[in-house]
Write a protein that binds this DNA or RNA. Sequence first.
DNA 1: GTAAACCCTGTAGTATACTTTAGGGTCAAG
DNA 2: CTTGACCCTAAAGTATACTACAGGGTTTAC
Lengths: 139, 139
Amino acid sequence: MLNIGDVARQGGVSVETLRYYEQQGLIETPDRDANGYRKYAPEVVRHIQFIKRAQDVGFTLRDIGDLLSLKADPGASCSDVRDRALGKLSEIEEKIDVLSRMRDVLGTWTNACPSTGPVSACPILDALEARKGPANADR
Amino acid sequence: MLNIGDVARQGGVSVETLRYYEQQGLIETPDRDANGYRKYAPEVVRHIQFIKRAQDVGFTLRDIGDLLSLKADPGASCSDVRDRALGKLSEIEEKIDVLSRMRDVLGTWTNACPSTGPVSACPILDALEARKGPANADR
DNA sequence: GTAAACCCTGTAGTATACTTTAGGGTCAAG
DNA sequence: CTTGACCCTAAAGTATACTACAGGGTTTAC
Ligand SMILES: [Zn+2]
Ligand SMILES: [Zn+2]
Ligand SMILES: [Zn+2]
Ligand SMILES: [Zn+2]
């Protein structure tokens, strides 16, 4: 059995994060020792790594809670999980699209800026001031 | 002279947002009428659109405050503005990189999931459970 | 026997860009 | 002359995922 500090070290998170996850219902409430200390089974470390890996691919803690429910539900099907993953994939692609448009516009603008001379003649500020650049083509 | 509601409608923001921008120093403090109402010159609408366009390409309100300072500073040079734009461009590219990696991993996982059968055999959950996928190759 | 390192609870703070609420004046139309 | 639309301030709430703080008990090693 592990103390919270052991779990934190092995899981690569802080003890505060562990208490937070517990409070959010992402890890099961651990038993307590006579002194009130949380006592964890070693497998909780894997559980925390599940959460961290899910975060790494873009799932929020709320999403992860849903995934854990599915995982624990014998009636749930593979497609339920896949649907969450596909939904997240769409969200991510949407974000990439938005950012790519920003990148394109900013790239155009920075290319147009001579980098010399006063700000009063800066094409970047010009583009921001008037509706000239393609920045807001769709808004 | 315009009331705050007029400016809000013409600028495509809420009156609360206008008061917030004022409080944040992003738009100059307007004169007040005898009744205490804010009275705006029509050009403030353009000013708001500057802010919105800058947000559209990824600048935060803090960034925008900096840009406005540069714009107002006769001693500032074009390269100052360009530097901000290039910095933002890097930030955006970094975000795109992170998201692209998430997309690739999630894509691989969803392709591996047969979408039929119980969750206990879902390769997506498998990938999250164990250190198997390329999700955390660099962490 | 005491100091460091650890554990506990509960609450508040962080960042961003607003939105909402509470409580209350002002103005224009009918 | 009242109703609805509009304006005002100040403070608190929203979302996310923690982090920090205050105040205090426990364990371990010297
Ligand atoms: Zn320039
Ligand atoms: Zn599956
Ligand atoms: Zn009221
Ligand atoms: Zn203390």
